[in-house]
Design a protein around this nucleic acid. Structure first.
Lengths: 109, 109
DNA sequence: AATATTAATCGTAATATTGCAATATATAAA
DNA sequence: TTTATATATTGCAATATTACGATTAATATT
């Protein structure tokens, strides 16, 4: 298969999984950290910074953009990427609520 | 390929990606939510609760256990699963630090 | 001992992901 | 208008993931 049966889960469960999935590759983590560190970044800089080929970086950027977590701004021949702060804040709320559930008292049955 | 080039990333980036990856499937999100909700849970209960086949649930539990986020306690013929609170707390710190980076002032270049 | 119950493992089919070379596209510069 | 530069898209090979039927393993019950 390789295909998650999303219809058997709640919208929230699927939403959490979608966000998590996009963070599930170190290249995308690295891209996001870089965008946070320097506020805005050209695609070419990311290709140099991270050691992956240009089409590979472009593909990872596309996934981040598709979820809305980053924005791309065309400037001449290059594209400037940055964090979509509004969307990031929304995502953060959802994810932190999931991560920050009340820890059970006892460790196991 | 289908194989992430982990050697070109920092340990932290790979750690974040590994945690995120395991949350990247709604079934595993659902399992964890259930374990938080009722503190401890038998494998069979999870199979009933979530609509996936027993081997599928067993596989997802294995992945969560492999990362150390849950513990399994054999009780006769059944196995009682629960959150590994110590590991969960450590994971939470790492993930929240990633999610909670300082939002840039300007939205884009 | 024979049978039932519960969960793990194996094998396998369907699909998804990753990475990159080659190519296309779009703007800038000469 | 040709050429250079930067990024996106396409196509494809290698690998990973998801799901489940069949089977196995381990303990309980009769």
């Amino acid at each position: 298969m390789g295909l998650a049966k999303t219809e058997m889960f709640t919208d929230l469960q699927n939403e959490i999984a979608l966000y998590a999935k996009v963070f599930g590759h170190p290249a995308r983590v690295a891209i996001l950290q870089k965008l946070f560190a320097i506020d805005a970044c050209y695609c070419g800089d990311l290709v140099n910074e991270i050691g992956l080929a240009q089409p590979t970086i472009s593909q990872h950027l596309k996934e981040l953009k598709h979820l809305g977590l980053i924005k791309g701004n065309v400037e001449g021949t290059s594209v400037c990427y940055c964090i979509n702060t509004e969307k990031w804040t929304k995502m953060k709320e959802v994810m932190i609520q999931f991560l920050d559930q009340d820890i059970p008292k006892a460790d196991c049955c």
